[in-house]
Design a protein around this nucleic acid. Structure first.
Lengths: 250, 250
DNA sequence: TATCTTGTTCCGATATTTGGAACAGTGAGA
DNA sequence: TCTCACTGTTCCAAATATCGGAACAAGATA
């Protein structure tokens, strides 16, 4: 089985993600080369996407992601009750701590950023809502491994080393996960991005982990001695979100 | 020519928009009925969409929009320089005026909301980022008809009457557009939604209209006598955005 | 001007989508 | 508890829409 071929729809979606990853509008030939599609195929797929507004083509034949994607993407966030309930607490936290605070959740075995409020520092973390984060080298990843390992899938094989401090051995990660479980929070001190420190706590609804909130900033601002203060604030906010979540419907 | 049939990709996109418009997750049969697709076709298209994360299916076979859409949708906004530059002024305006302020732009002949900052009132306007607004019955629509009629396409035939105050005759609209052009701003007093008043000004970069910012609120809060104050604040903000826009690149 | 590019269109071959039908699992109602 | 109606899923032959090479027109480049 030589890697089953993607269908028509999948190719079209691949074009969307490619346009998303490119900073500038792309031409048909360029897209075809990047995704290994004949020019005419790329052209036809782009025409279909353009008819529905998912891409926009200028008069020169360059294409870029279209406004139709905005409505669809924002709709996903509006639909999620956790995002709605977390918005206020996130703003409070960012105000109090002065650093960037964000909300994450696991979907399809991966972890994505669902919302954020940026801090006030000249040097500050700026996660992108909708993007994924690795599992083995982040604070929220460790939390999921601790509280809901069935919701995330750690890549098999060797784990990627992002920085000198990245934990790449399973035994190291196991130890960190156990620590996260017993302490109730997880840390990531420059294990993913040099200079970046993240402290995260889980949002637990009746023992089930439905997400995590975290504070992120430069290592100088989130020193180890300050950790208890950040953790306390995060835990309070997470409890508030979980409480409102329990009130809502189920 | 009996209304050419949509291709595979278009059908898949139609499914995305249908899921977006439904508040609850949908089953295969339900989607098939709504879009006139056989069950098996809907199922296969959903499988393709799910493989790329644009939809998520639960264990019961219900499908809903997926997280992949978030990254794509937010990416569109990040890419747009007007959105980035308008963010600050929008927040200032919302703070000063106390009402909801939003940014719109024309794409593909239609007008969409690109960003918003909501006001503080218990009763306040809550536009949805990414959604479209009508042209003939909104303040921003009149602005586009005045400054860049080639960018928007007024529907042919009779214009839809949303409220008793909606202008449905071309001559009425022409007069309103001329007024908007001469005064530099446009108003919409309950012409689209009962009780909703909007005041909008264009963002002009070297005589070209690249968007509009507007303040929206209940008619009681945006009385006619207050209009000059709102207009002045909006005009200042629009000029600031346009100025920074001129500085950036071209 | 000559020579590359580019985006777009065309059209026959074929692989992919299509959609009816059968299957299996679930939930409601008797 | 049994039944029935309804789901979502899978299968497969038929048909058709996709595919992709080639030709075309329009710019950009040298």
């Amino acid at each position: 089985m030589p890697l089953e071929a993607p269908g028509t729809v999948e190719k079209a979606i691949d074009i969307l993600f490619h346009l998303h990853s490119e900073p500038a509008p792309c031409g048909v030939t360029q897209i075809g080369r990047a995704l290994d599609l004949p020019k005419s195929t790329a052209h036809r797929l782009l025409a279909s996407l353009a008819r529905r507004g998912l891409v926009e083509g200028d008069e020169r034949g360059r294409y870029r992601p279209g406004l139709g994607l905005v409505a669809l993407g924002l709709g996903v966030l509006d639909r999620d009750p956790v995002v709605a309930l977390a918005r206020g607490p996130l703003e409070d936290l960012a105000e109090r701590l002065g650093e960037t605070v964000f909300l994450t959740a696991a979907r399809r075995g991966r972890i994505a950023v669902l919302d954020k409020v940026e801090g006030r520092g000249f040097l500050r973390a700026t996660p992108r809502v909708g993007e994924e984060v690795p599992i083995h080298s982040t604070a929220v990843g460790k939390l999921y491994l601790a509280h809901a390992p069935e919701l995330v899938s750690l890549p098999s094989g060797t784990l990627r080393r992002f920085t000198p401090r990245t934990l790449t051995q399973r035994s190291q990660i196991e130890r960190a996960v156990k620590e996260a479980l017993s302490r109730g929070y997880a840390e990531n001190r420059e294990e993913w991005i040099p200079g970046l420190v993240v402290i995260a706590v889980p949002i637990l609804r009746s023992r089930q982990m439905v997400g995590a909130i975290a504070v992120a900033g430069p290592s100088a601002s989130l020193a180890k001695t300050d950790t208890p203060r950040s953790v306390a604030a995060l835990v309070r906010a997470a409890a508030r979100i979980a409480g409102q979540l329990a009130g809502k419907s189920q």
